[in-house]
């Protein structure tokens, strides 16, 4: 029984939001915005793949993946948010200078250090590119530490593509292959599903780590395509989405069988969760 609650067990930012101010705001697509938030007093450092609980005062709170992680607690945090509900809509509608409350960092991170010296393939579907952007930025910053690096990215239409300017920049250093589900002129790029890009992506199956995020069905087909290339389940990493209310493993909402996605995830290997994802309504 606890006789005291040391601060490391009840850290600042875990239970009570810290105020952040909207410093930059950019509309990426029809329903998605990227916000740069600066901590009012203290913020928190974030590892690639971790997320934050973002609170709009008087409206509510949702988990949001961090697309630009602060390395130090005082650094600004970059969030890419799709306006799909009341809270995410209110976050996206936040004006410059508006105040939001952030809790975090929540969850585990992508095992990018373990992927060092090998190849990296990033497979993203839709808003799934947001939590993977830190992986891409990391490989760009540490380009010499990795072998072949490719980004395979699928979206609904060309207008739904995130970070289009950055995709072009990335192309000068790493392979970037983009496809859309449907297109009209003047799109000259690929039309088709993103798992299809896996077959021709440049990587050594025995030396690659795959980082995958997108709708669960998209991830399922991506896993199949990666397996066909001979990538072992242990090196196929997935980031999952579940309902989350507390973000720190206390509220129960994010359960996926034996695991709590906010506490043990959101990043898992296919070896860890493949069987669980195969169970309907688990």
């Amino acid at each position: 029984m606890a006789t005291a609650t040391p601060s490391e067990l009840h850290p600042v930012g875990a239970f009570v939001p810290l105020p952040f101010r909207v410093a930059e705001r950019r509309q990426d697509t029809g329903d998605t915005w990227t916000l740069t938030l600066e901590p009012e007093e203290s913020g928190f450092a974030v590892e690639p793949g971790q997320f934050a609980m973002v609170h709009v005062f008087g409206v509510g709170e949702v988990p949001i993946s961090v697309s630009g992680p602060p390395e130090r607690p005082g650094d600004p945090i970059v969030l890419t948010v799709r306006a799909v509900g009341a809270v995410s809509g209110a976050i996206c509608a936040s004006e410059l200078g508006a105040l939001l409350g952030l809790r975090g960092p929540c969850g585990n991170s992508w095992p990018i250090a373990e992927a060092t010296a090998g190849d990296v393939v990033v497979v993203a579907g839709g808003i799934g590119l947001a939590p993977l952007r830190p992986v891409v930025l990391h490989t760009l910053a540490q380009r010499d530490s990795y072998g072949a690096v490719s980004v395979l990215y699928g979206a609904r239409t060309p207008a739904d593509l995130l970070y289009t300017d950055q995709l072009e920049e990335w192309r000068s250093t790493i392979a970037v292959d983009v496809t859309v589900d449907a297109a009209e002129p003047p799109w000259k790029g690929k039309v088709g599903v993103v798992p299809k890009l896996v077959a021709t992506a440049e990587f050594r199956p025995e030396a690659v780590t795959a980082f995958v995020c997108g709708p669960e069905v998209m991830m399922h087909f991506t896993v199949q395509a990666l397996r066909e290339r001979g990538v072992p389940d242990e090196r196929i990493m997935l980031s999952l989405e579940r309902d989350m209310r507390c973000g720190i493993g206390l509220c129960g909402h994010c359960q996926l069988g034996p695991t709590l996605v906010c506490r043990d995830g959101p990043v898992y290997s296919q070896a860890d969760v493949g069987a669980l994802l195969g169970v309907r309504e688990l």
Partner: peptide, 16 residues
């Protein structure tokens, strides 16, 4: 509530 990485302060206070 008090056995994991994060301690629920309200529970801990009532329980303690």
């Amino acid at each position: 509530f008090i056995g994991g990485k994060f301690v629920d302060r309200d529970y801990a206070a009532r329980r303690d």
